[in-house]
Design a protein around this nucleic acid. Structure first.
Lengths: 191, 191, 191, 191
DNA sequence: CATGAATGAGCATTCATTCAT
DNA sequence: TATGAATGAATGCTCATTCAT
């Protein structure tokens, strides 16, 4: 299957880029890095992606897809409170956070400061919007009204981002672990 | 005074680096950019700073100094609650946040992802520690005990960072403006 | 018919190369460009042409053939003067000249400056010789003797080339349109 | 003199680019070629010219300057006919024409076919305009009226270009040498 | 102290050509 | 025959850092 072969390499490149961009940031990740990790000859990268920017777009698509998978998993919890608790755990139970931060937040921040990549920055921000909308849905399922649910969703996610950021900066997962419990409590108090 | 002249150029370089690193990030800021904005010949930069890294160290020193100035201003408020409210306002009343984010958080995050700059990253993180310690002192002044005060300080600052980050990502200051009020309320509830 | 299919693809490739080389020059035309315009898979190009140079050789053959067709058409005119007038009109009545120049002259010039393509340059120059010889025949038909007819033919064609070149450079067909009439007059004066 | 040193290298680069672009065309000339001929380290080229396009712009300036020098030399002839004869000789008495063509015409033609370099193409065409205007002035000095003088200038220059082009294509200076005499005769007939 | 200039390693990207099936 | 994919040498360009004066 030629098809499979092709998809395999392309997928390996996106996976490699995903990991490296997460660990080293977009700017610090060279195409040579990505090609090497994916075990693809450098020249061949351009068969799959016309520019470096195209790779990050593919990474964003992959992350969007991964996010949907996460939402599906979380949807197995019976109550919105439980789903949000699961969402928090996705961060607090991840030792990479204290080493590389939140994959969504850190990329968005980096791109926000690159005027020449505003188009990608918007796509990355869109990912966050999707995320916040999912949270909002949970709050609505808890009978919160329109504006309140959205505002609480933004606040909820901003709290997680703040905790992830401090965890990264101090390379210390304790803060995130400690406060994630209170986050769930905060949610439960709405009920 | 040769001395004065020297300090002037050095200061201009640090000021320029401070601004550019805030707006464009460290990686996107070239020494040529800094030299140009400071109106200092490129070759002359190396008389004051042996490497690019040295400049960022100087920027961190400047920011630490600026922070002390902020603390002095805030100390004029009579109560710790008022001081913390002033601290929050320092962020919420700053239109640059929605364009460039928090100068402390964004730099720390960027450096955290550069293995070759871990020494600087630590210095930048130290700045955040200083900041959190100041917050902790306010909580202590509100009669909170040792571990609680520190934990509340971390939480307090992480909330601000989360709000700053979302403001930047969506280029929208509204969330920060809205939630800063509730932050002060949260503080007041401790009293 | 495999045969027919093969010829079709080959012909499409040559046609595409002919157009693109005329419009973009040889150097600016990639094999991918040609393959795309001809709607032939890139990898398949090499079944018909071993190298990029082989394509241009085929293009030259095609142009030589097109030239014979032109000569046949012109031969329907009853006098050599009329034939030469028709030849001039072939250039002056062609709006592409002011956009892309003379297909023969511009390619020859480009190849003349590429030491590694001297073999092709010679073939391209041969095309021009053929052309000049046809003109020479017309002058002979006007009872001009051997050296005179050849010299007039060279001069005649050089005038056309000069006009085509200026038309291209200034993207203005007026000069060519204006002077083409005097060219025919110049020819008629020989009679 | 630092100044002189700088000008020297810059001048060497422009001179090298001038020669190489004339001999190999713009597209075939790499920055490495230019740097090597000028004996300047490749990385240093960018201190003087931000992009490859900037080099060709400098070459065009140099050629414009050289042209003025030529005009000054020709102005020493007492009559416009003599000046135009001198101009023709500038081409006919130049063995490089049969090897590399006309430096003005060939560059203009090459750039005309590169959509991404239309700005430079216009500057190159401007050089030709200057040239034609000078010729026009000579015709006016021969008491030719406004439109006639300009048209004759265009025709005069287009004849030269046609001869240069054929000389290049056939690598044979004879045509140019032979017909340059008749060009001067053609001019003289106006008197 | 000052500074215009020099240096070279590194990066994204292109493209003719080849390969495996 | 056909073709998607692979390859690697080459090219324009960047930039921190160093040098000569």
């Amino acid at each position: 299957m030629t098809r499979v072969h092709r998809n395999d390499k392309r997928e390996r490149l996106v996976d490699a880029a995903d990991v490296l961009i997460y660990q080293q940031s977009f700017h610090n990740t060279t195409l040579a890095d990505i090609a090497k990790l994916a075990e693809v000859p450098l020249g061949n990268v351009y068969y799959y992606f016309k520019t470096k920017s195209d790779i990050i777009v593919a990474v964003l698509s992959k992350r969007a897809h991964d996010l949907q998978t996460l939402f599906e998993q979380l949807s197995q919890a019976s109550t919105p409170e439980a789903r949000l608790a699961g969402f928090v755990e996705f961060f607090s139970n991840n030792e990479n956070i204290a080493r590389f931060g939140c994959q969504f937040g850190s990329l968005c921040q980096e791109l926000s400061k690159q005027p020449e990549h505003q188009d990608i920055a918007k796509q990355a921000a869109q990912l966050l919007s999707t995320l916040i909308q999912w949270i909002e849905q949970q709050f609505k399922a808890m009978n919160q009204s329109e504006p309140t649910a959205k505002q609480n969703a933004e606040l909820f996610f901003s709290k997680i981002q703040g905790l992830c950021l401090l965890s990264l900066i101090f390379h210390d997962p304790k803060l995130l672990a400690r406060e994630s419990a209170s986050l769930s409590t905060w949610v439960a108090d709405f009920a």
